[in-house]
């Protein structure tokens, strides 16, 4: 069963049509990449799924439920987590406080504690710095914190928006290793990236977005050999 199914989604900014009837799906356990240039509509797509931007037309089904009537803040409890573009950690709060906010919709304290240990096991650096103020972390560490915060809700699907943006090459590699590790653990990910090469190397399938339309889709390995992709996105 698809964990997420998007059908004929249209989104407008005023009179400008930002998404022109796009359709895609994410299966359970998959890592799906949404690649495309700046302004293609990648972030818009994720924000619409999370309910931060209203859709004009179309249908979004998450875990068997229609998302059109669901309040954005209720999605976390349903099993959707979103690692936003630019990380957006709560800069004045500690690492631990940030992580606990990720588990905000969970009631059982013991479960939160257990999940916290799982997140620390994945990101030992977050445990070392648990009492540090998040705003004083490096960019890469903040990205780890944003991912850790999302994982605190034990999500069925993680939306990741440009996790490699603004990071040094070493951290970019580290972040993609983390995504590969999440995939190995069976976490379902919808990944939005400008770094098409890296995204395709970690994804199972991918969709290519150009000016609000899906122009190509398919197996990530095959897309990597596609001549149009190589020219436009891989710089070859």
């Amino acid at each position: 069963m698809s964990i997420l199914e998007v059908n004929d989604l249209e989104v407008y900014y005023g009179v400008i049509r930002a998404l022109k009837s796009i359709s895609f799906r994410v299966e359970e356990g998959e890592t799906v990449a949404l690649i495309g240039a700046n302004g293609a509509g990648k972030t818009t797509t994720l924000h619409t799924i999370s309910g931060l931007i209203p859709m004009r037309k179309g249908q979004m089904i998450f875990d068997g439920k229609d998302l059109s009537r669901i309040k954005p803040h209720a999605l976390a409890a349903m099993g959707m987590a979103h690692v936003p573009e630019g990380r957006r950690v709560f800069a004045d709060m500690t690492v631990l406080q940030n992580l606990k906010l990720g588990a905000f919709s969970r009631k059982q304290k013991a479960e939160t504690e257990e999940t916290l240990q799982m997140v620390y096991a994945r990101f030992p650096r977050l445990e070392e710095r648990k009492n540090q103020i998040a705003g004083t972390l490096s960019g890469g560490e903040q990205q780890m914190l944003a991912i850790g915060r999302a994982l605190m809700s034990r999500p069925k699907l993680v939306l990741m928006d440009e996790p490699s943006m603004g990071l040094s090459p070493i951290f970019v590699n580290e972040i993609f290793d983390i995504i590969a590790g999440m995939k190995a653990d069976g976490v379902t990910v919808l990944l939005v990236e400008q770094n098409a090469k890296k995204a395709l190397s970690v994804a199972d399938r991918a969709y290519v977005l150009e000016t609000g339309e899906i122009v190509l889709s398919g197996d990530a390995k095959e897309l990597m050999d596609n001549e149009r992709i190589r020219k436009a996105y891989l710089g070859e």
Partner: peptide
């Protein structure tokens, strides 16, 4: 308290707070 932490989160970033499941 959770409500108190939610207040701090909303004060800093309403969007990110919503994504964490906080009802702004």
């Amino acid at each position: 308290t959770k409500s108190g932490q939610a207040m701090l989160a909303v004060a800093q970033d309403k969007g990110a707070a919503t994504l964490c499941g906080i009802d702004v």
